[in-house]
Design a protein around this nucleic acid. Sequence first.
RNA 1: GAUCCCGUAGCUCAGCUGGCAGAGCAUCUGACUUUUAAUCAGAGGGUCCCAGGUUCGAGCCCUGGCGGGAUCACCA
Length: 525
Amino acid sequence: MSRVYTEQEQVRRDARVRMEKEGVSPYAYSWNVTGNAAGVLDSFDDALHQPGEDGTPAEPLTVSIAGRIMSRRIMGKASFFHLQDETGRIQIYVSRDDLPEGFYNTVFKKLLDIGDIVGIEGFAFRTRMGEISIHAQRLEVLAKALRPFPIVKETEDQTYNEVTDKEFRYRQRYVDLVVNPEVRETFRQRAQMITTMRRFLDDRGYVEVETPVLQPIYGGAAARPFTTHHNALNMKLYMRIADELYLKRLIVGGFDGVYEISKDFRNEGLSRFHNPEFTMMELYVAYKEYNWMMELVEEMVEHLAMTLHGSTDLQIGDNTVSFARPWKRIPLFDAIEEKTGEQLFGKNRDELAAAGKKLGLEIDDSMGSGKIIDEVFGEFVEPHLIQPTFITDYPVELSPLAKKHRSKDGLVERFEAICNGKEICNAFSELNDPDDQRERFEEQVRLGKRGDEEAMQLDEDYLRALEYGMPPTAGLGIGIDRLAMLMTNSESIRDVILFPLLRPEVDESDTDDSGSGEGTSSSAS
RNA sequence: GAUCCCGUAGCUCAGCUGGCAGAGCAUCUGACUUUUAAUCAGAGGGUCCCAGGUUCGAGCCCUGGCGGGAUCACCA
């Protein structure tokens, strides 16, 4: 069943047919690319390359490039258009007499459209108006675009056709990338960030590993998992919510430093800061503890800012954020006291509940003391931490995999780095006492039975690994998407994930005149 | 899940107090050999998100639904 084409689509399809009749393939097999737009613009030298009176330069800067037609200015016997490749845009000059007989008047003028992909061979020159351009000596159609692009057209005081519909941009990211160069730049920066991070870790001798995405027992974080099923073994499997427990098994196995950069999956709502699948970097280093890890985080993130932007100070939203070392370090309870005036350390559950209510929070009976503390922190402290700050020493009940604090009772050696009001990493001195770990797991199981859907499961194999002995270890998890948001000054996680999860699209060709509902929308209430 | 806002041409958006559906860009036809918002002359293009209701008359008002965005909740 065929779709009804819009007028502009029909025009393009007709052009494709006519092109084939002219013996011009609308879909070529390859093109020998020897340069790109940015390269030509950079290397053009008027003294060497600009043609003289006879029209040809003494030392021509010849190039073969390919890209998409982004604008057209068609005139009688010569025309201009802009070609966009991955590096940018460059103007192309086409003259009738430089192309095969008839090609200019039929194919070029009538059958090519904005959005079509073409290959150009020619030499660079500067036009009378001063724009470095390529004088085409050969032009070949490489791919016909059958749908029109909402190509942005900018003038000094106006912008036409800019697609502002976020849904359109996320659903048809391929169009977004063509039309909005800054989107390409964002994802290039994201890639550079990950490459830089990987090199930073490799240089220190840590081994990049891959651990299972499909896990019989999920663990390492507090979250609801996606579940799936393996047919041959007839077993329930979970998509991982964290890499942690497998990576620490590798520390038991004798690796002194391992890391993994990969997707985790959490069955939760969507927001500006949450996508159900997201990228995490986890690192575990033997014989180290959390103070050491704070220094590594500072050094790495400062290095990222310098590599990507050449500065430690970045403009993020309305704020200037400085990633220059050292970052401020404040114990969690001191930070809460600083912002609220309440010293919560050492208080029991009821006292905490009272303090929370006094601060105006809604506290219900299901909330444990850890939850209340977390709530107070999230409400009164976290949003106000703009400059990167390490918050340290969390309550043990919030941190079932972290080692007890060496000097503060009831706390663990854990830190989070907060920046621009959001957590960017979570780390601790890893708990390596198998008996303590078993008790923590058992407490989680109790919470799970009481209805906490995010409680961890008891992982016997992990405990068995710890019983063989795990060296003291520092562990770290960094949310790559959140860090990319900071590094690219993006306000939504969807702007740093190429294809964010969206509600399924209604099929545009589905005419659905059946009338009988499929039971999807009826009887809501 | 809650609240608020939005849905009109391919894109961005106007549309008054309810009275013939509009603009720019894009598209089509013609002219033009250095244009760059090319220019000039002409033309076409609409399920006004969907379904009801009120009305002589609905893009506009009312009800319900669908879709999207923002904020909140959830999510250490």
